[in-house]
Amino acid sequence: MKADVTIDCIGLYCPMPIVNTAKKVKEMGAGQVLEIIADDEGIKQDMPNWARMTGNEFLGIEEDNGKYHVFVKKKPQ
């Protein structure tokens, strides 16, 4: 999957990946895709839930050697 912006949350635990995601999405334009790279397994459930609560679109997760690449699309204005 292709992203417009990527943030690195490797080594960070709850709630930091969510906080960093919320901050970054705020700066992004509508419809842009954010990739979050993290290694805390909690993100597998946390990110779809965060997206549902905030109205952003959860696009999916790609797992690769204990790293999770999570894709979120910012909602239209």
Partner: peptide, 11 residues
């Protein structure tokens, strides 16, 4: 604070 930050991050 963890819960508060989670809530604030979810709007």
């Amino acid at each position: 604070f963890n819960i508060a930050i989670g809530g604030a991050s979810a709007g």
